[in-house]
Amino acid sequence: MDYDDLKIYCAEKQGAREDYPFGPEPLVIKVSSKMFALISDGEKYPSISLKCDPFLAEILREKYAAITAGYHLNKKHWNTVLIDGSIPEDEIMEMIDQSYQLVFKSLKKTEREMIMNA
């Protein structure tokens, strides 16, 4: 996966939209007003920060050297994933899906319904 693959996969989520609240980097992907992914195009490899269940976040950090506590984010609930080829692509997509679902579930019922009915 590369930067564009990450961007496309995240943007395909229902109700997802791109934003740049912090300047030109990172690209923030939101569902409604809440972010579920932050994508940076690093010097050597891109990275993506994703929301994660705290228990699972720790397991993933132990399993992969390319996954660290969220950079400039709540370290308990966010992981930063370096896209260096050491993590299977399907696992990265699953992490993106989980992040989206966690954030989507946290939206107000009216926001979820608007997204689902769009």
Rank of each mutant, 00 (worst) to 15 (best):
T68H: 00
C10H: 03
S32I: 05
I59F: 12
K108D: 10
T80L: 06
S40I: 11
R61I: 10
V31Y: 05
F36Y: 11
Y3D: 08
Y20Q: 03
E94A: 15
V81R: 00
E18I: 01
I39V: 14
N74G: 02
S86I: 06
Q98E: 12
E58S: 11
M116E: 14
Y45C: 12
V31N: 00
I67D: 08
K63R: 15
D97A: 04
I48N: 10
I59W: 05
G23M: 05
D53Y: 01
D41V: 08
C52T: 12
E62I: 05
Y71H: 12
V31S: 01
G70S: 04
G42D: 13
V28L: 08
I8R: 12
D19N: 12
K109V: 08
S49E: 02
A11T: 11
G85K: 07
S99I: 00
P46T: 14
E91V: 06
N79T: 05
K76D: 03
D5F: 05
L38P: 11
P46Y: 14
L102T: 03
E94Y: 12
D19T: 12
M114K: 12
M114V: 07
L107Q: 06
A66Y: 04
I83S: 06
S99F: 06
R61Q: 13
E62F: 09
I39C: 02
K105A: 06
S33D: 15
Y20P: 01
Q98M: 12
C52S: 15
I59G: 00
I83F: 08
D4W: 10
P21K: 03
N117L: 13
I39L: 03
L56P: 01
F55D: 10
I83D: 04
C10F: 11
I115L: 12
S33Q: 09
E43A: 15
K30M: 13
T110C: 06
A11D: 10
E43C: 07
P24A: 11
G85M: 11
A66S: 15
I92T: 11
L107C: 05
L56S: 04
N74I: 06
D5L: 04
H72K: 15
K105D: 15
D41P: 05
D97R: 12
L107H: 07
